[in-house]
Design a protein around this nucleic acid. Structure first.
Lengths: 366, 366
DNA sequence: CCCTTGAGTGTATGCGCATACATTGCTATC
DNA sequence: GATAGCAATGTATGCGCATACACTCAAGGG
């Protein structure tokens, strides 16, 4: 790895000054064509690549945006993969997976899709995108480090302590994703959790006629859960019902906890007419429990989820759900960031993205 | 956004020199504790965040690694999401999705998982990870820009023109993912495509007894397809069969092309005993075609896929497949990069990662 | 023929940090 | 009590680029 050539090398090779080299790269129109070609030839010949650090320092902008997500502390089973001698192994393992768990680690699909949208939009605008997933307790440090190297920061709500965030906001624009509160001090992107659940619940209740309903909620500290519950309650009230009229169970947004909730309801010997779940994983878990017991969905019980994950589209019956536009969340965040960079003084804005209520076989009789 | 404080501001606030400030942050042990605390207090008070650009320039390393993936040109339907007034909308759309397509855009799950692995491993090593997805014809430019801002580049095979890559390799370490050829000039990570398909095919053929087999291949220009075919052929030969003894169809790695292949085989009126597909999407397509026609899988026909995507775990019957360790690919790539950064003169190395052959209901009779 | 004008290029500087080297003030040593 | 030795800190410099400003030169105007 020879020492990387710099503007100086290119300049002397092409017989011009470094200013001209820089201009050829940044404002080609300002340079005579013959000069430009000479410089470009040297650039190619030397394999010159401008230093991002030097550019960033001189121009006072890095041209990169940062995306920070909270991680799952648990996943850090930190084994080295192997030494290179792995090449000697047979290269495969035979596994009898018949009857294997249909459960699956689909845990951070949320991250994946948001990232994809953010990357797309960042690319369109000429930004690089740097990603970091928080792990362990060093969120504040990690995000701080990131803040030093980007022009703007996209942060998932709750992933960074509020005080640390406000600190950073003094230096660098911040957009909060999936913020619980619109109208905070930051630009933010939210999803119509509440409206979506309201629409879904209203539909289910309206179809049913009867009010015999169970609600499988998520953890108490989840803002998503709070919003969805609020939407559900408002739909109830429209029908003259109260939260007290509903059988409420609380899970952890996991398929296993959905299975438990479903089994409990079965065991009670008195199934409700509908089981509304605060997310898809739990909805799928409920389906698991019911499918194993001869109960027919949707004929005996209607089941719904929330999120619109892929597995909800592949279950049988397919799960009625509310699809969150996760990729759009990423894209919208970058758009808000662009706006903020263009006009640092603008009032904090909030984008609320629409959801799609997908009525499928788990709730619709043909 | 007040002007960001610098080392100079912190130094004067704390009554020390900038060298001391820098030391407090980088080599705390070299500074007396009382001084250190004074400096840290100023850092906190001023909300100081070190400039990544300046650090990178002075230290000659950016502390970031880059991950470059080819994109899907088609996906760029570049609509602006909306103005901020979207907040006035109802926030949801009701969609009757009964009988909706179970097909799904699972297109860049590969990207997602590799990224996740790379991010994890980069984080462990204190690197930031910058991602870019190539779009349009500017791969060389985009990757060049990226090269200027990272200490090392991970590149998916085929995503960057070879000459551009070799150019860059003179300046910056490069690791190629899913390289077709081990033993090239670059460090690379590959997956045991060939060995996996060999094992799977040998298992199927052995079970079957008979040799009546169809193979649904992918596009001719796919290195993955080439390797898998090679593994398949070697398994055939072990049984004394030749490629000519097999019915070969070629698809495009899509579910639709799998459906077509399945329909064709059905229409021939003479189903083979096994249909080996070069990827899961096509395998699922074949299942789609067969499921609609009363043919029983695996009793009448065995069907297999390759890749281990989630949908293959959720189909009915569940699809026997070969699972690629995509997250491991990302992790291994970072490990190779670390090694290369530690020892720039090391011989190019290649890691071949093992796959898992997952025998499931589409090939196994109980 | 002198002056103005503008296109094209060069010179000089600063961006914010890390770090080699110099300096200071102690303590330990004899 | 003089000196070597070390810990703690300061001074000065360069990293590679963008860019404000200065300069040159040729064409056009008076």
């Amino acid at each position: 790895m020879a020492k990387a050539p710099t503007v100086y090398d290119v300049a002397s090779d092409a017989g011009v000054s470094i200013a001209t080299v820089s201009r050829v790269l940044r404002r080609p129109a300002d340079v005579r064509e013959s000069t430009r070609e000479r410089v470009m030839a040297s650039v190619r010949e030397l394999g010159y690549v401008p230093s991002g650090s030097a550019r960033g320092l001189a121009a006072r902008r890095t041209g990169a945006l940062g995306l920070y997500f909270p991680g799952f502390d648990a996943m850090d089973d930190l084994d080295e993969i192997s030494d290179l001698s792995a090449n000697e192994s047979p290269g495969y393992t035979l596994i009898d997976d018949v009857g294997g768990a249909q459960d699956s680690h689909q845990f951070n699909l949320y991250f994946d899709e948001v990232l994809r949208g953010a990357e797309l939009e960042a690319w369109r605008r000429g930004f690089a995108l740097t990603v970091a997933v928080g792990r362990g307790g060093l969120a504040a440090d990690a995000v701080r480090d990131m803040a030093g190297r980007v022009d703007g920061l996209l942060v998932l709500s709750q992933s960074v302590p509020d005080d640390a965030l406000e600190q950073l906001a003094r230096r660098i624009p911040i957009v909060v994703l999936a913020s619980k509160a619109e109208g905070g001090p930051f630009d933010s992107v939210t999803v119509s959790n509440r409206e979506g659940m309201h629409a879904l619940a209203a539909h289910v209740i309206g179809d049913l006629g009867s009010g015999d309903i169970a609600y499988v909620a998520g953890p108490l500290d989840s803002p998503d859960d709070t919003d969805r519950w609020a939407g559900f309650v408002s739909a109830l009230r429209e029908r003259g019902m109260e939260p007290g009229d509903v059988r409420l169970r609380r899970g952890e947004f996991t398929r296993a906890s959905g299975r438990r909730a479903g089994a409990d309801l079965l065991a009670s010997g008195d199934l409700p007419k509908a089981i509304i779940c605060a997310n898809d994983q739990m909805g799928l878990g409920v389906l698991d429990a019911l499918n194993g017991s001869g109960v027919r969905v949707p004929d005996d019980v209607v089941v719904t989820g929330f999120d619109g994950i892929e597995a909800a589209n592949l279950s049988s019956p397919r799960l009625t759900t509310v699809h969150q536009p996760m990729e759009m969340v990423g894209r919208a965040a970058i758009q808000l960031m662009q706006r903020r960079l263009d006009d640092p003084e603008a009032e904090p804005a909030s984008m609320r993205l629409p959801v799609k209520v997908l009525l499928r076989e788990s709730s619709e009789r043909k």
